[in-house]
Design a protein around this nucleic acid. Structure first.
Length: 653
RNA sequence: GCGCCCGUAGCUCAGCUGGAUAGAGCAACGGACUUCUAAUCCGUAGGUCGGAGGUUCGAAUCCUCCCGGGCGUGCCA
């Protein structure tokens, strides 16, 4: 049972004689802000005062008089201006705990079986190695899928892979010009990946050669402008200072770009072999694009290469997903929708939605300056077109009631236009949601990069996390009072779970809308709100069962509800009954940080319980059994909760 | 220029469909290992919620303006 829902339901009944629509007022029942006020509180008497023209406390008294809650609560108390405070009865909490003990779902209601949700997340480009930029979408999207599924929703997780874009042209070009046959024979994926990076680097090099003089010129004119403004503007004037500040920032930005451009040049020029390759083709970028265009036009050779390379590229991605324990129901990439795009644009034209503007096909949405561009001047389709085709497919074929896009917040305008276009196109019975998220920042508050300014590869990020947690595992296990407990293999497994769990948890614990600062120290810290802390609480419980040689299954069917003999037991049990609330809170607006917060609090309450309530050596057999039940329920809730976030739980650490 | 987002404790962040003295974690300080893992627990200290107005019985939360920062802005995805 979801206690919060139940209390709202009861409150709604009590409100029925007072107002026509009690729902919004019943929704004002919330978990108590402060334990001193009880467990839950109703805040609806105050806003009703104005509406009913009575004093809030009088209204509260009427509500309390109508309330039928004596089976679950102590008599509700009215406090302050008109708060109604609920304190759950100990024996009721205990009976709830007993019920949860035999509930596979741990109190989470299964209420959404008739609802189909498509979750679009991760969506990397094939052939490019995944990097930190993919982390949030991947981790967040996976957690959302798991949580929705656990709640009973029909979920289709879809990896909308970029498998039809310019990067394939680069690989094809690289294959035709720079292939190392023996390397290719030995490891196809590694060689393709090398070719991609090589062509990309050479393209960047030529772009840099071209850009440098322009940048230097730009810098000069910016500096001149700055000097001029400094001379003519009155620095005591705020507007003028601001203008100068902006110019200074622009100069700095240009200087940074020049520096990074120079380092790109140096990288190639300091390597004679690389320089020679660069000199072979001064227009490599254009030629690579040409390969892409040939592919799109159905060129036989390039199509064959695409067919040959794609499985290998996907395999490379799957390796990463396997390690992250992330799986998709489908991987319908851009290429899948390619044959439908002409028809999409025709359909939009027919309905009068799309019209020509500056040689491109555009959908203009009222209230938006920028058009939604579905076909470019050169006739090529855009990702807008693909996204529309995808929507049509998801609704017609997958019967989606709702589509979630777990994508960076910077694309919000695109989705605004996409959703509105889809609705006007006729797909207006489906809910669309851009589950947006902020940027991962480095300690310098700039987007997270390596020391040298490159994007951080996902693989190296994970390796680093696992290596660091391995050091901690070794250190702690070696210093255990009774000697080390873990063999090398176990240590490696624990390090993997702690390292990857740490990365995922650090991401999920933040409100998805916020940018957050990536910190190794905080992510893997032994203290604080981390995966490690939650995993440790779970491992301690497993230790109890191991040492006591406890049969957990028979524990669950043992007679008698848990006993509440100490405040720590009550607090722990109460939290355990609230797992369903936490899941609901996540689903409300797709915010997994609601679940991390719940799990952290649960771990915290357990740790207090652990310190204050001895379990195995408890002499009172009934109390010992009761506490073992709390341990079992806590362990299962922690394990299930972490699993819903995609995080594993070691039994020993 | 226009649009979107952000500004909460020394640091990292919750809280934001208005509700009681604004919460956590880290760092700081003080305690607790003959007891099931001290990767732990308990306690202390720390805030004019960027600023100013407004709406309200009540504002970190809603509205307006200002200051500071980020992002996006027709043919990359």
């Amino acid at each position: 049972m979801n206690v919060l829902k139940e209390l709202r339901h009861r409150t709604a009944k009590a409100l029925a004689p007072l107002v026509d629509d009690p729902q919004p007022f019943a929704a004002m029942v919330k978990p108590a802000q402060d334990a001193q006020f009880g467990d839950y509180q109703a805040n609806c008497a105050m806003p009703l005062a104005g509406k009913l023209k009575q004093k809030p406390r009088e209204i509260a008294e009427q509500i309390v008089a109508n309330l039928e809650v004596d089976d679950l609560c102590e008599p509700p108390e009215i406090a302050g201006p008109g708060f109604i405070n609920f304190k759950l009865k100990d024996d009721w909490i205990a009976s709830q705990g007993q019920a949860l003990l035999n509930d596979e779902r741990l109190g989470v209601e299964d209420s959404e079986a008739d609802r189909t949700v498509v979750v679009d997340f991760s969506s990397p480009n094939v052939a490019k190695p995944m990097h930190v930029g993919h982390l949030r979408s991947t981790v967040l999207g996976d957690a959302i899928c798991r949580i929705l599924r656990f709640r009973g929703t029909q979920v289709h997780s879809d990896n909308h892979i970029g498998d039809w874009g310019t990067q394939f042209g680069m690989i094809i070009y690289g294959y035709k010009h720079f292939l190392d046959q023996s390397a290719f024979a030995e490891n196809q994926v590694a060689e393709l990946s090398r070719l991609y990076r090589l062509v990309n680097q050479l393209s960047d090099y030529h772009a840099a050669v071209k850009a440098l003089p322009e940048l230097e010129e730009q810098l000069q004119s910016q500096q001149q402008l700055l000097e001029a403004k400094r001379g003519e503007l009155d620095t005591s004037d705020k507007k003028a200072r601001k203008e100068i500040g902006k110019l200074e920032a622009a100069v700095k930005a240009t200087q940074d770009r020049i520096e990074s451009t120079r380092s790109k040049l140096k990288e190639v020029e300091s390597d004679p072999a690389l320089k020679a390759l660069a000199d072979q083709d001064l227009e490599i970028a254009r030629h690579a694009r040409l390969e892409t265009a040939k592919l799109h036009q159905g060129d036989a050779e390039n199509t064959e290469l695409w067919n040959q390379f794609l499985p290998a590229c996907l395999a490379m991605l799957h390796q990463m997903y396997e390690r992250l324990d992330i799986h998709f129901d489908m991987e319908l990439g851009e290429s899948f929708y390619q044959p439908m795009l002409t028809d999409v644009v025709d359909s939009l034209k027919q309905q009068g939605l799309a019209s020509e503007s500056d040689g491109a096909m555009c959908v203009f949405i009222e209230g938006n300056d920028a058009p939604f561009l579905v076909q470019k001047q050169d006739g090529a389709f855009t990702y807008a077109t693909t996204d529309l085709a995808t929507i049509r497919y998801r609704i017609n074929e997958l019967k989606a009631d709702e589509i979630l896009y777990v994508v960076d917040a910077r694309q919000s305008e695109h989705f605004k236009l996409l959703f509105e276009t889809a609705r006007q196109w006729g797909f207006d019975q489906t809910e669309y949601q851009h589950v947006s998220f902020g940027t991962i920042l480095g300690e310098d508050k700039r987007p997270f990069k390596t020391r040298s300014g490159d994007t951080v590869g996902l693989e190296s990020l994970i390796d680093e996390a696992v290596a660091q947690s391995r050091k901690i595992v070794d250190e702690i296990d070696d210093s255990k009072p009774d000697g080390p407990e873990l063999d090398a293999e176990t240590r490696a497994n624990v390090a993997e779970m702690v390292g990857i769990g740490g990365i995922k948890y650090a991401d999920l614990r933040h409100n998805r809308d916020s940018d957050y600062v990536f910190s190794w120290d905080k992510m893997l810290a032994k203290d604080g709100d981390t995966a490690t802390y939650v995993q440790y609480a779970h491992a301690r419980i497993c230790g109890i069962f191991r040492k006591g040689d406890i049969d957990r299954a028979s524990l669950r069917t043992a007679s008698g509800s848990p006993l509440i003999s100490a405040p720590e037991e009550r607090a722990l049990l109460l939290q355990l009954t609230r797992f369903g609330e936490a899941i609901e809170a996540v689903c409300e607006d797709y915010r997994p940080n609601q679940l991390t917060q719940y799990l952290f609090e649960l771990s915290n309450l357990f740790s207090s319980f652990y310190v204050n309530c001895i379990v195995l050596k408890e002499e009172n057999a009934e109390l010992r059994t009761s506490r073992l039940k709390l341990c079992d329920l806590t362990a299962r809730t922690l394990q299930t909760g972490l699993k819903l976030l995609g995080i594993e739980t070691p039994e020993q650490m």
